[in-house]
Design a protein around this nucleic acid. Structure first.
Lengths: 357, 357
DNA sequence: CCTAAAAAAATGTACGTACAACTTTGCCGA
DNA sequence: TCGGCAAAGTTGTACGTACATTTTTTTAGG
């Protein structure tokens, strides 16, 4: 038999629900009705309903009937607009990511609504609410303070309730079941640290950002590498900073110098930090890469333009943007599409790492 | 009918599996055998097996048979020993927590194997491995660096695979399905901040720990309170530190002073930080509570002994320890027991908060 | 018009049969 | 000894019936 009878009934009902013909809470035909309609026995109908109940499409109530529990969308008018929320816009790797997104969207007849949060949750709240109000066909979001519990959880719940397709870029909130398109940050941290290890470095410090999940992952990769190489982990060689520390970064100069004491290698969370470190080291007479080998992540313009060109792990940037946009458009067509992508990292070698003899 | 026939079969098989009589991968009786054994029809047997398949106890393979897929334990000899792992032992609130645990364990004929990690993941790795080797009947663990991805994930997986009952105290790793007994840290942050708000403070700064999940939750509660009161959130008034910053805390003096500029209230992650802040403020001629109202969390000895006695949110301490131990012992008896407890916070008023007119 | 009982309707449990699809086992012949 | 094949065993699909339990609707009585 090609397809079992109960299976044809399963797909028939599923389609009715997903197309919106049967809405949330509505009663579906009774078992006897379906049995008559499809000329199959009631037992077979029950088998089909059982499967749909397992998949959370239906729910039976004895004596009453069988009801749809699948939360279908209220059909909105397509706006052909995609909301794009990032932390920053004009600097660092963001212009290229956004350009990648825009290319794909315009090519497909969508327009883009761009907003940024400066990594502040109150801005994220405002921006998301406004986009919900305007009605987007889909959203590409770089999470704000993804390393901390998100107080905008309710807004995200509302977005999911309304079944607006969303893709996170660069990161994601652990716990939320939203697909992401990112650099594999853990692998990036691992790769960068292993690069230093292969260059003969034994004591390697790290500087990471604590309020972004990316920071946690890159740190995890850093640990993975140290453990894999059989090295001890020295917490005293790790420095954590947060978004609000960035304007004060120079104030941490003494602390950072203390943290890297005795280290020949240093992994920086990103190129921006890497560049700051280069400045700090210069001021303090520590030569890079002669005295300290430095590797960073993202491979932004900064890495190339830095006084000491930085060896850095490549971020896919525009490719990431394009992929996110493409996958979002597919997700709009097909809600079941698995949109998550992790880009594997690659090292771009420049002049900030010295090979130890 | 009291209990349906298929249900008696479900419980019968479940028991056989959970007791270890039927092990992972083993074939269970065929549908016809069960039908004969229990004098019920094959359809009814199938109904029971279906339920167990849904619950991931069994898996049927057509033409072959039905197999156990529930990962059962190899029965170990009870050691009557409970492993207790905390970050610190002799200081702060830890002696009281541990005393609470010990009281309950000894009263029930268990001995305690105590170890501490200093909040370093490599110590946690060593300690957990050693305990796994020795064989514990159960474990009470305060997670190490719970605010960061845990590189000891594999060890925790192994513990769960061996079905050793575990309860986390004070926190937990988000994502792991392990029960915890904790202060409701989010509520604690909320309560403390609301206390300052009720005292008339409008601009409230916060100092939190970034590598502990507790820090994230207390911060989330702090945000909850500000949002609830309709206040703006000012990231520049939040300071994050990590475990390795503690010895250097005085180095952050200038940065912290900058962060609390313009604030009349300050929420401190714990009493230890609170006390440090009191010292710093004294050195800089800022009077507490006249110029700055300070509230902290944990209500340890430090809060009472501090130069300026600190208003603080009470941590259950020995009650928490007792509860964790009691629930662990119940969990050893009954693997399905829901052991998670969140203690609701209470304010202990002292002299560090001033009511604004 | 309201209430309470009765009837109807819906799902839940349980039995039975038959055959299909697939896997394992064991036998037989090369 | 091994491959192939048939037989036996096991789960999957499908039908039918009967009655239980629960909810909803209808009806009858006041």
């Amino acid at each position: 038999m090609e397809m079992p009878k109960y299976m044809t009934l399963v797909t028939w009902i599923k389609k009715k629900i997903e197309s919106g013909e049967l809405k949330y809470g509505e009663k579906v035909y009774s078992e006897n009705e379906l049995s008559a309609m499809f000329h199959i026995s009631r037992q077979t109908v029950r088998q089909a309903i059982n499967i749909l109940a397992q998949d959370k499409y239906l729910e039976s109530r004895q004596g009453s009937g069988t009801y749809v529990v699948f939360n279908t969308t209220v059909k909105r008018e397509p706006t052909k607009t995609i909301g794009v929320v990032t932390t920053y816009v004009r600097a660092y790797i963001f212009p290229q990511i956004i350009r990648g997104i825009e290319d794909v969207l315009t090519k497909n007849g969508y327009s883009m609504q761009l907003a940024f949060t400066h990594n502040k949750i109150q801005n994220e709240s405002r921006v998301l609410r406004s986009m919900l109000e305007k009605g987007m066909d889909g959203m590409i979001i770089e999470p704000t303070q993804s390393g901390l519990p998100n107080p905008n959880f309710k807004i995200y719940e509302e977005i999911q309730r309304q079944r607006i397709p969303v893709i996170f870029i660069n990161s994601g909130y652990p716990g939320m079941k939203i697909p992401h398109v990112s650099l594999n940050d853990r692998a990036a941290g691992l790769l960068a640290t292993e690069y230093l290890i292969r260059a003969g470095h034994k004591r390697i410090a790290g500087i990471f950002k604590s309020d972004d999940h990316q920071g946690h992952l890159r740190y995890a990769g850093y640990l993975d590498a140290l453990l894999k190489a059989g090295y001890e982990i020295h917490d005293e060689n790790v420095f954590w900073y947060s978004t609000q520390d960035v304007p004060d970064f120079s104030k941490f100069e003494q602390i950072i110098l203390r943290r890297i004491e005795g280290c020949t290698g240093l992994l920086c969370y990103n190129d921006e930090v890497g560049m700051r470190i280069v400045e700090i080291m210069k001021r303090n007479g520590i030569a890079i890469p002669e005295d300290l080998s430095l590797i960073s992540i993202d491979n932004s313009d900064l890495a190339a333009l830095c006084e000491v060109p930085l060896t850095s792990v490549a971020h896919p940037m525009n490719v990431l943007g394009e992929t996110a946009a493409q996958n979002l458009l597919r997700l709009i067509q097909d809600h079941t599409f698995k949109a998550t992508v992790d880009f594997e990292p690659k090292i771009v070698e420049r002049k900030s790492v010295r090979v130890l003899e």
